[in-house]
Protein backbone atom coordinates (compact mmCIF):
# COMPACT_ATOMS: atom_id res chain seq x y z
CA UNK A 1 0.00 0.00 0.00
CA UNK A 2 2.81 2.40 0.95
CA UNK A 3 4.58 1.54 -2.26
CA UNK A 4 1.49 2.48 -4.30
CA UNK A 5 1.11 5.74 -2.43
CA UNK A 6 4.76 6.64 -2.97
CA UNK A 7 4.50 5.94 -6.66
CA UNK A 8 1.39 8.10 -6.82
CA UNK A 9 3.08 11.08 -5.13
CA UNK A 10 6.05 10.70 -7.44
CA UNK A 11 3.76 10.70 -10.47
CA UNK A 12 2.02 13.84 -9.17
CA UNK A 13 5.42 15.52 -8.90
CA UNK A 14 6.32 14.57 -12.45
CA UNK A 15 2.95 15.73 -13.78
CA UNK A 16 3.24 18.99 -11.89
CA UNK A 17 6.69 19.62 -13.34
CA UNK A 18 5.43 18.93 -16.87
CA UNK A 19 2.45 21.22 -16.27
CA UNK A 20 4.64 24.10 -15.12
CA UNK A 21 7.02 23.61 -18.05
CA UNK A 22 4.15 23.77 -20.57
CA UNK A 23 2.61 26.77 -18.77
CA UNK A 24 5.90 28.67 -18.84
CA UNK A 25 6.33 27.85 -22.53
CA UNK A 26 2.81 29.12 -23.34
CA UNK A 27 3.33 32.23 -21.20
CA UNK A 28 6.47 33.02 -23.21
CA UNK A 29 4.61 32.32 -26.44
CA UNK A 30 1.92 34.83 -25.42
CA UNK A 31 4.22 37.56 -24.14
CA UNK A 32 7.38 37.44 -26.27
CA UNK A 33 5.78 39.42 -29.12
CA UNK A 34 4.83 42.22 -26.77
CA UNK A 35 8.25 42.16 -25.16
CA UNK A 36 9.94 42.65 -28.54
CA UNK A 37 7.34 45.32 -29.37
CA UNK A 38 8.10 47.32 -26.21
CA UNK A 39 11.87 47.00 -26.67
CA UNK A 40 11.71 48.04 -30.30
CA UNK A 41 9.44 50.99 -29.55
CA UNK A 42 12.30 52.45 -27.51
CA UNK A 43 14.88 52.14 -30.28
CA UNK A 44 15.64 54.52 -33.13
CA UNK A 45 15.38 53.55 -36.78
CA UNK A 46 19.14 53.20 -37.18
CA UNK A 47 19.41 51.05 -34.05
CA UNK A 48 16.56 48.87 -35.32
CA UNK A 49 18.26 48.28 -38.65
CA UNK A 50 21.32 46.87 -36.83
CA UNK A 51 19.35 43.88 -35.53
CA UNK A 52 17.64 42.94 -32.32
CA UNK A 53 19.01 43.45 -28.81
CA UNK A 54 17.04 42.47 -25.70
CA UNK A 55 17.91 45.69 -23.87
CA UNK A 56 15.70 48.77 -24.29
CA UNK A 57 17.14 51.99 -25.69
CA UNK A 58 16.21 55.62 -25.02
CA UNK A 59 14.25 56.78 -28.04
CA UNK A 60 10.68 56.06 -26.91
CA UNK A 61 9.74 59.73 -26.48
CA UNK A 62 11.53 60.72 -29.68
CA UNK A 63 9.67 58.02 -31.68
CA UNK A 64 6.40 59.16 -30.16
CA UNK A 65 7.03 62.82 -31.03
CA UNK A 66 8.01 61.83 -34.58
CA UNK A 67 4.81 59.82 -34.93
CA UNK A 68 2.69 62.76 -33.80
CA UNK A 69 4.36 65.05 -36.34
CA UNK A 70 4.07 62.49 -39.11
CA UNK A 71 1.34 61.99 -41.68
CA UNK A 72 -0.95 59.72 -39.66
CA UNK A 73 -3.76 61.53 -37.77
CA UNK A 74 -2.97 59.61 -34.59
CA UNK A 75 -4.76 61.76 -32.03
CA UNK A 76 -7.82 62.13 -34.27
CA UNK A 77 -7.79 58.33 -34.59
CA UNK A 78 -7.57 57.90 -30.84
CA UNK A 79 -10.46 60.34 -30.30
CA UNK A 80 -12.61 58.60 -32.94
CA UNK A 81 -11.86 55.17 -31.50
CA UNK A 82 -12.74 56.39 -28.01
CA UNK A 83 -16.00 57.98 -29.22
CA UNK A 84 -17.10 54.88 -31.11
CA UNK A 85 -16.06 52.31 -28.49
CA UNK A 86 -17.36 54.41 -25.57
CA UNK A 87 -20.77 55.02 -27.16
CA UNK A 88 -20.97 51.36 -28.15
CA UNK A 89 -20.35 50.27 -24.57
CA UNK A 90 -22.99 52.63 -23.15
CA UNK A 91 -25.71 52.14 -25.79
CA UNK A 92 -25.22 48.40 -26.12
CA UNK A 93 -25.39 47.61 -22.40
CA UNK A 94 -28.24 50.03 -21.60
CA UNK A 95 -30.51 48.95 -24.45
CA UNK A 96 -29.63 45.26 -24.14
CA UNK A 97 -30.67 45.46 -20.49
CA UNK A 98 -33.88 47.15 -21.59
CA UNK A 99 -34.60 44.46 -24.18
CA UNK A 100 -33.86 41.73 -21.65
CA UNK A 101 -36.16 43.44 -19.17
CA UNK A 102 -38.98 43.57 -21.74
CA UNK A 103 -38.74 39.80 -22.26
CA UNK A 104 -38.09 38.98 -18.59
CA UNK A 105 -40.68 41.09 -16.78
CA UNK A 106 -43.72 41.27 -19.06
CA UNK A 107 -46.14 38.84 -20.56
CA UNK A 108 -47.31 39.70 -24.02
CA UNK A 109 -48.41 37.86 -27.09
CA UNK A 110 -45.20 38.15 -29.11
CA UNK A 111 -42.87 37.47 -26.15
CA UNK A 112 -41.96 33.92 -27.10
CA UNK A 113 -41.63 34.79 -30.77
CA UNK A 114 -39.32 37.75 -30.01
CA UNK A 115 -37.11 35.65 -27.72
CA UNK A 116 -36.76 32.89 -30.31
CA UNK A 117 -36.16 35.46 -33.04
CA UNK A 118 -33.33 37.17 -31.14
CA UNK A 119 -31.70 33.80 -30.40
CA UNK A 120 -32.04 32.80 -34.05
CA UNK A 121 -30.31 35.91 -35.39
CA UNK A 122 -27.55 35.78 -32.77
CA UNK A 123 -25.06 34.00 -35.02
CA UNK A 124 -25.53 36.06 -38.20
CA UNK A 125 -22.08 37.53 -38.88
CA UNK A 126 -21.93 41.25 -39.69
CA UNK A 127 -19.84 40.45 -42.76
CA UNK A 128 -22.69 38.78 -44.63
CA UNK A 129 -24.93 41.85 -44.32
CA UNK A 130 -22.10 44.31 -45.04
CA UNK A 131 -23.07 44.71 -48.71
CA UNK A 132 -26.62 45.87 -47.94
CA UNK A 133 -25.29 47.89 -45.03
CA UNK A 134 -22.92 50.03 -47.09
CA UNK A 135 -25.58 50.52 -49.79
CA UNK A 136 -28.05 51.68 -47.15
CA UNK A 137 -25.51 53.97 -45.49
CA UNK A 138 -24.71 55.50 -48.89
CA UNK A 139 -28.42 56.18 -49.43
CA UNK A 140 -28.77 57.62 -45.92
CA UNK A 141 -25.71 59.82 -46.55
CA UNK A 142 -23.96 58.32 -43.54
CA UNK A 143 -20.71 57.32 -45.23
CA UNK A 144 -17.67 58.87 -43.53
CA UNK A 145 -19.78 59.28 -40.42
CA UNK A 146 -19.30 57.54 -37.08
CA UNK A 147 -23.03 56.92 -36.54
CA UNK A 148 -23.19 53.69 -38.62
CA UNK A 149 -20.60 52.26 -36.23
CA UNK A 150 -22.43 53.43 -33.10
CA UNK A 151 -26.19 53.05 -33.58
CA UNK A 152 -26.33 49.34 -34.57
CA UNK A 153 -24.92 48.41 -31.15
CA UNK A 154 -28.37 49.11 -29.66
CA UNK A 155 -29.50 45.78 -31.13
CA UNK A 156 -26.92 43.28 -29.84
CA UNK A 157 -28.37 39.77 -29.50
CA UNK A 158 -25.35 38.30 -27.67
CA UNK A 159 -25.35 41.02 -24.99
CA UNK A 160 -29.12 40.70 -24.71
CA UNK A 161 -28.76 36.98 -24.05
CA UNK A 162 -26.17 37.53 -21.32
CA UNK A 163 -28.33 40.20 -19.67
CA UNK A 164 -31.39 37.95 -19.81
CA UNK A 165 -29.49 35.10 -18.12
CA UNK A 166 -28.12 37.40 -15.43
CA UNK A 167 -31.50 39.03 -14.84
CA UNK A 168 -33.10 35.67 -14.15
CA UNK A 169 -30.71 35.17 -11.22
CA UNK A 170 -30.82 38.65 -9.65
CA UNK A 171 -34.20 40.22 -10.35
CA UNK A 172 -37.19 38.83 -8.46
CA UNK A 173 -40.58 39.91 -9.81
CA UNK A 174 -41.62 40.81 -6.23
CA UNK A 175 -39.20 43.71 -6.30
CA UNK A 176 -40.86 45.13 -9.40
CA UNK A 177 -44.31 44.59 -7.88
CA UNK A 178 -43.19 46.51 -4.79
CA UNK A 179 -42.01 49.43 -6.93
CA UNK A 180 -45.37 49.43 -8.70
CA UNK A 181 -47.17 49.50 -5.35
CA UNK A 182 -45.17 52.58 -4.48
CA UNK A 183 -46.54 54.13 -7.63
CA UNK A 184 -43.33 54.23 -9.65
CA UNK A 185 -43.83 54.31 -13.42
CA UNK A 186 -42.49 51.43 -15.50
CA UNK A 187 -39.72 53.44 -17.14
CA UNK A 188 -38.69 54.87 -13.78
CA UNK A 189 -38.69 51.40 -12.21
CA UNK A 190 -36.39 50.24 -14.98
CA UNK A 191 -33.91 53.08 -14.51
CA UNK A 192 -33.96 53.30 -10.70
CA UNK A 193 -34.27 49.64 -9.71
CA UNK A 194 -33.36 47.33 -12.59
CA UNK A 195 -30.28 49.08 -14.01
CA UNK A 196 -28.49 49.43 -10.62
CA UNK A 197 -29.19 45.75 -9.84
CA UNK A 198 -27.67 44.79 -13.19
CA UNK A 199 -24.47 46.80 -12.60
CA UNK A 200 -22.07 43.80 -12.41
CA UNK A 201 -23.40 42.37 -15.69
CA UNK A 202 -23.39 45.81 -17.30
CA UNK A 203 -19.77 46.34 -16.26
CA UNK A 204 -18.61 43.03 -17.75
CA UNK A 205 -20.50 43.54 -20.99
CA UNK A 206 -19.41 47.18 -21.24
CA UNK A 207 -15.78 46.02 -21.21
CA UNK A 208 -16.36 43.34 -23.85
CA UNK A 209 -18.33 45.71 -26.07
CA UNK A 210 -15.71 48.43 -25.69
CA UNK A 211 -12.86 46.08 -26.58
CA UNK A 212 -14.77 44.53 -29.49
CA UNK A 213 -15.53 47.93 -30.93
CA UNK A 214 -12.03 49.28 -30.26
CA UNK A 215 -10.52 46.38 -32.23
CA UNK A 216 -13.12 46.32 -35.01
CA UNK A 217 -11.67 46.70 -38.47
CA UNK A 218 -13.96 45.19 -41.14
CA UNK A 219 -17.00 47.52 -41.03
CA UNK A 220 -15.13 50.75 -40.19
CA UNK A 221 -12.82 50.13 -43.15
CA UNK A 222 -15.86 50.03 -45.46
CA UNK A 223 -17.50 53.16 -44.00
CA UNK A 224 -14.66 55.52 -43.09
CA UNK A 225 -12.47 56.86 -45.89
CA UNK A 226 -11.70 60.43 -44.80
CA UNK A 227 -8.84 61.13 -42.40
CA UNK A 228 -10.97 63.05 -39.92
CA UNK A 229 -13.19 60.03 -39.14
CA UNK A 230 -10.67 57.17 -39.26
CA UNK A 231 -10.31 54.92 -36.20
CA UNK A 232 -7.03 53.32 -35.01
CA UNK A 233 -7.37 49.95 -36.81
CA UNK A 234 -7.75 51.80 -40.11
CA UNK A 235 -4.60 53.80 -39.38
CA UNK A 236 -2.80 50.52 -38.70
CA UNK A 237 -3.96 49.21 -42.08
CA UNK A 238 -2.80 52.47 -43.67
CA UNK A 239 0.59 52.01 -42.05
CA UNK A 240 0.76 48.50 -43.53
CA UNK A 241 -0.17 49.75 -46.99
CA UNK A 242 2.39 52.57 -46.87
CA UNK A 243 5.78 52.09 -48.44
CA UNK A 244 7.05 50.78 -45.15
CA UNK A 245 10.63 50.30 -46.28
CA UNK A 246 10.99 54.06 -46.29
CA UNK A 247 9.12 54.35 -43.02
CA UNK A 248 10.77 55.02 -39.68
CA UNK A 249 10.37 51.61 -37.99
CA UNK A 250 10.59 53.17 -34.53
CA UNK A 251 7.39 55.05 -35.32
CA UNK A 252 5.70 51.88 -36.58
CA UNK A 253 6.39 50.09 -33.29
CA UNK A 254 5.21 53.07 -31.23
CA UNK A 255 2.00 53.22 -33.26
CA UNK A 256 1.27 49.51 -32.64
CA UNK A 257 2.04 49.92 -28.94
CA UNK A 258 -0.19 52.99 -28.78
CA UNK A 259 -3.14 51.11 -30.34
CA UNK A 260 -3.06 48.14 -27.99
CA UNK A 261 -1.92 49.83 -24.77
CA UNK A 262 -5.30 51.22 -23.58
CA UNK A 263 -6.91 47.78 -23.73
CA UNK A 264 -3.93 46.10 -22.03
CA UNK A 265 -4.00 48.63 -19.16
CA UNK A 266 -7.74 48.21 -18.62
CA UNK A 267 -7.27 44.44 -18.73
CA UNK A 268 -4.51 44.40 -16.13
CA UNK A 269 -6.80 46.22 -13.70
CA UNK A 270 -9.97 44.28 -14.43
CA UNK A 271 -8.67 40.88 -15.53
CA UNK A 272 -10.51 39.08 -12.72
CA UNK A 273 -13.90 40.27 -13.92
CA UNK A 274 -13.03 39.87 -17.59
CA UNK A 275 -11.81 36.28 -17.29
CA UNK A 276 -14.86 35.50 -15.16
CA UNK A 277 -17.15 37.09 -17.73
CA UNK A 278 -15.95 34.88 -20.58
CA UNK A 279 -17.72 31.78 -19.35
CA UNK A 280 -20.85 33.45 -18.04
CA UNK A 281 -21.87 34.54 -21.54
CA UNK A 282 -21.23 31.64 -23.86
CA UNK A 283 -21.74 28.38 -22.06
CA UNK A 284 -23.69 28.53 -18.90
CA UNK A 285 -24.43 25.37 -17.03
Amino acid sequence: MDEVKKRKTASVHVRRAVAYAVLVFLTLLCLIWFYILIINATRSHSELSKGFTPIPSTHLIQNWVNLLHGTLPVFRGLANSLIVAGSNAVLCTYFSTMTAYAIHAYNFKLKKFMFTFILAVMMIPTQVTALGFIQLMTKMKLMDNLLPLILPSIAAPVTFFYMKQYMESVLPMSLIEAARMDGAGEFRTFNIIVVPLMKPAIAVQAIFTFVGSWNNYFTPALILHKDRVKTLPILIAQLRAADWLKFDMGQVYVMILFSILPVVIVYLFLSKYIVGGVTAGGVKE
Binding site: C30, R240, I260, Y267
Partner: peptide, 18 residues
Protein backbone atom coordinates in the same frame (compact mmCIF):
# COMPACT_ATOMS: atom_id res chain seq x y z
CA UNK B 1 -1.41 32.08 -16.01
CA UNK B 2 -5.09 32.56 -16.85
CA UNK B 3 -4.59 36.32 -17.08
CA UNK B 4 -1.62 35.90 -19.41
CA UNK B 5 -3.13 33.32 -21.75
CA UNK B 6 -6.36 35.29 -22.13
CA UNK B 7 -4.56 38.58 -22.84
CA UNK B 8 -3.94 38.03 -26.60
CA UNK B 9 -7.70 37.54 -27.11
CA UNK B 10 -8.25 41.22 -26.31
CA UNK B 11 -5.46 42.57 -28.50
CA UNK B 12 -6.50 44.38 -31.67
CA UNK B 13 -6.14 41.70 -34.36
CA UNK B 14 -5.05 44.22 -36.97
CA UNK B 15 -2.34 45.61 -34.67
CA UNK B 16 -1.21 42.08 -33.79
CA UNK B 17 -0.96 41.20 -37.49
CA UNK B 18 0.96 44.41 -38.17
Amino acid sequence: FKTVIYLPNLIMASAFAM
